[in-house]
Design a protein around this nucleic acid. Structure first.
Lengths: 330, 330
DNA sequence: CTGAAAGCGCTAACAC
DNA sequence: GTGTTAGCGCTTTCAG
């Protein structure tokens, strides 16, 4: 179907296209009467402005790019919801680019992003973060990084303070005299793993101790479950900290199979809550992370950058809530 | 940073912009020597064609709209990965529109879609499907519906045959003489629920029986778990079929708490496999559904429609694999 | 094989 | 207040 253009509206309303443009864009210099006429024409013809043409004329697309590593997409869904809802409020569209090992290289994605002339880029953090920001930097395009603490000239970031969560959790156990604490690596979220480790180190250091129980999962290991099955035979911990729900559940399963009682013999904490953490038995104590808010905040940062507002705080931290359930003692 | 335009490339290469355009678009009429010159200029200046301007000139955006109900986003992640990977191959961008109750109405989303002049729309099916397709229909824009069996002039669809899966499963139990079978409603995926029901009805009918154990979860019920906690006190089934992993896990949990042995007293099947189904204890027998392929197929259908290829089969069905685990008998 | 020029639909000075 | 006009960056006839 031939889409109707601003010319046809102008003709229908018997005005110039400039006037139609004015009413579309809510310019207040238009006489009320004229505005009415134009609006009627718009409705009658079902005219919808062509965003592409607007984009060309205005040199901006009101479109944002979003880069998400394919493997993170399922974890990111709440965050994307937050992004999308806020984007809608500010009338931005989101072009989603997944980056898949073997299929879509980061260079190609950046190339597409540049071609599409998006006004800004949101990057869901993962190990390719540095590469994306470096490639994008040369184009001087506003960026918001989600999930890592980073900022520069036109880069802001929004993230959840996993390090602090880890620190608080571990410090509280050290206070109780428990120091046989281990953190399980999450290969899928290496930056979060790193933060957890830092938090642990800090807590131990404050007690004059050194943290040395970061459990690296070997590359060849097929799953956390399989790895733990061996690991927990030879290694005992009073508290085991996992990032993802599935890893925490694996801990529970292996414990049950090895006759390790949770929480009596070993406590388990999941750092990133999900609906599954309260469906396990025992239910997993976990940190409720504000994923939706993370997205909303990130998008808000972006709209601020784009509107030229001064962003006072370029690295925004979000808090969390620790939810005690059954996998920990008292 | 001022982006470089085709003019600058033309000047640099000492040719007209028409020639530059030709080499960008791989026209084969350009002399090899000229092409070289232009390509050098392109590289030297770091020129990237402006997709917006191209869109205007060509009257197509090489961009597709994707509508996903916010609540489905997490289930849809694999499917979106499939969509995205194939889209990348065919050089299409995807603008994602979530539709959130209370925030983004379907009318507004459709309005945005029209304004953005996407070349086609993919719709992840849910209860708002009819509304979206009806609104979109008047613009004569190619659509692909994901997750429902539907087609018309410029609508194709790709879906997984849940009805058949349900039918086969239930028929096999009836063959074994087990007919105390119930299907648990999934309010989040009402169309799938409906298909499961149809499959059940069909299987029963073939045995001259009538299926009457569709468990509707009352609107006021906060969670499947809470609902089942009461329900399973008064109702016994030999086979309980749930769609989502979380519902199936809820069945397992309630059963354990009520002293119902799974699979001996009651078998449980999860229709949509996920990584969590094999993490439950007992592990859940479930149908492995090709979510990624669903997305890939849907996108392939879209590219076919857009390239004007004749789409012989407008409603594409995908198969599944039944994975027996511990929650069912032999 | 290449260049000139019109046009895609809209915005934004600049006139009137 | 409203109209005229020159772009925005690119593609595509149509000449040559």
């Amino acid at each position: 179907m031939k889409r109707v253009t601003i010319y046809e509206v102008a003709k229908e309303a018997n005005v110039s296209l400039a006037t139609v443009s004015r009413v579309i864009n809510g310019s207040d210099v238009v006489k009320e009467e004229t505005r009415k006429k134009v609006e009627e024409a718009i409705n009658k013809l079902g005219y919808k402005p062509n965003a592409i043409a607007q984009g060309l004329a205005l040199q901006k697309s009101t479109t944002l790019g979003l880069i998400v590593p394919e493997s993170s997409l399922s974890y990111a869904s709440q965050t994307i919801n937050g992004l999308a809802d806020v984007a809608k409020i500010y009338d931005y569209n989101i072009i989603i680019h997944t980056i898949t090992e073997g299929i879509s290289k980061i260079e190609d994605v950046v190339e597409e992003i540049i071609k599409s002339r998006v006004d800004g880029v949101l990057i869901y953090c993962d190990k390719t973060l540095d590469e994306s920001t470096n490639l994008l930097k040369q184009y001087n395009i506003p960026m918001v990084v989600i999930g890592d603490r980073i900022s520069s000239d036109n880069i802001c970031s929004a993230f959840i303070d996993y390090e602090q969560a880890s620190y608080e959790l571990i410090a509280s156990y050290l206070d109780k005299g428990i120091d046989n604490i281990a953190i399980l690596e999450d290969r899928r979220n290496s930056n979060i793993s790193q933060e957890l480790l830092e938090g642990g180190k800090k807590a131990f250091k404050e007690k004059g101790k050194e943290f040395d129980s970061y459990i690296s999962i070997p590359r060849e290991s097929r799953s956390t479950y399989k790895f733990l099955k061996d690991y927990l035979k030879d290694n005992k911990h009073k508290l085991l900290i996992a990032n993802r729900d599935s890893q925490a559940i694996a801990c529970l399963n292996v414990a049950a199979e090895n006759g390790i009682k949770v929480p009596d013999d070993m406590e388990v904490v999941c750092m990133t809550d999900s609906k599954y953490t309260s469906m396990s038995r025992p239910e997993l104590s976990s940190f409720i992370m504000p994923s939706y808010d993370l997205g909303a905040l990130a998008m808000r940062l972006m709209t601020k950058m784009l509107s030229g507002e001064e962003v006072e705080e370029k690295e925004k931290t979000l808090g969390y809530v620790y939810q005690v359930r059954e996998s920990t003692l008292n």
